[in-house]
Design a binder for these strands. Structure first.
Lengths: 209, 209
DNA sequence: CAACATTTTAATCATTTGATTAAATAACTT
DNA sequence: AAGTTATTTAATCAAATGATTAAAATGTTG
């Protein structure tokens, strides 16, 4: 027989192709990516891509699911902690996501795009349909906080705002950099500042009337 | 000779094709759009598209420039008013943009995408390189406001935040709707609320320390 | 209506692109 | 080393796609 293949054919080559696919797909999107681009980026022959992943779409799905999981799984850990306050969770989420986005600034636009292209296709692939938002620890914390502080605003607004303040600068980065003339380094420095600023802003929103 | 052609060949057909192109490009992006999709959407033959616009790219450029101008020109009017306060300008911008986005919810993702695909190509096409931000009325108003209220935060943050709070919900709409389960109608109602909320939130940010 | 210009179409090209195949090379096992 | 399996490649296919062409249909003018 053979030793162990079966599952892991050759982690090295396969991973190189995936990495190349990640780069190209994330930069150009599904429709904008040619299988040949991935071949070139990976340094391997075109047929290799199909040998390992059967089709462009299958490879894409793998990359996409990994991105989404990176996005979602980590958040669940924070959001469902029992002994972390609502405010502290926001601080953690902001800091955690900005760190991640500074390293992978193209992910948000890519993900938003492809979700937009086929909303239902992707939701099922990440296994989050099953969770009831109302059961999340953070939901209960919000309810308690809202009651105690007489906050009447729809929590969806707050959710949108937190996510918007974190993600939007990365999505709009080319426009922002062009309009303001700041460098990539300066941009990242601003993002670093936002780790502290966003929680303060969100707090200010909550107490504003 | 001929009557007046030269410039306006046939506004009706040409405009129908442009409208179809607008719809398809905005929904699927440049790479995701087939010239045949536009033909089908417009109801005309494929060759007509090339007859009127020579190529897919030329047609795309026209649509894109129109979108960007819709986005930018209107803002300039508001931003450069002499007799409107900073706070009032924010109210006007928010209200104006949300109205526009409720009608054209796909524009932001489309524009962000294509700018990302080729940042320099688009900037030149809208004729905004020439304007000096420091000379804008709103910039001076900001400087005065910041001094009077001892606001030290980089105004780029505030700019990003205002734009983020306005635009992000539309970019993230599929995710938001999926996660929260709200309908399109409820979503639009929330956007309507935001016209009043965002200025309040921005104000709260400015006075927060 | 005749002559001409404009508008629209069907048919066709040449590339691009996702995918397959068959064969060559490398790696591993005994 | 021989035999077997895994990996990689060059060559090729079929469908999709942007674009062109030549001709038909429609409209306009004198």
């Amino acid at each position: 027989m053979k030793k162990k293949p079966e599952i892991e054919i050759n982690a090295s080559t396969e991973e190189k192709i995936k990495e190349a696919a990640r780069v190209v797909f994330t930069r150009k999107g599904y429709a904008g990516t040619r299988t040949r681009d991935i071949a070139e980026e990976s340094g391997f022959n075109l047929a290799l891509i199909n040998y390992y992943f059967r089709s462009k779409e299958k490879l894409f799905d793998i990359i996409m699911v990994e991105h989404l999981q990176l996005f979602i799984h980590s958040v669940m850990g924070i959001v469902n902690e029992k002994d972390t306050t609502l405010q502290r969770k926001i601080e953690l989420l902001v800091s955690h996501y900005i760190d991640m986005l500074v390293k992978n600034p193209n992910i948000p636009l890519f993900v938003l795009n492809e979700i937009n292209a086929d909303p239902k296709k992707l939701v099922e692939k990440i296994g989050v349909e099953g969770l009831d938002r109302k059961e999340l620890v953070i939901s209960k914390q919000w309810a308690a906080f809202a009651k105690a502080n007489k906050v009447t605003v729809n929590p969806i607004h707050i959710m949108m705002n937190v996510v918007a303040l974190i993600i939007f600068p990365f999505v709009g980065s080319p426009v922002i950099r062009n309009r303001t003339g700041i460098s990539m380094g300066q941009f990242n420095a601003l993002m670093e500042e936002r780790k502290k600023l966003i929680p303060v802003w969100v707090n200010a929103m909550l107490v504003s009337k």
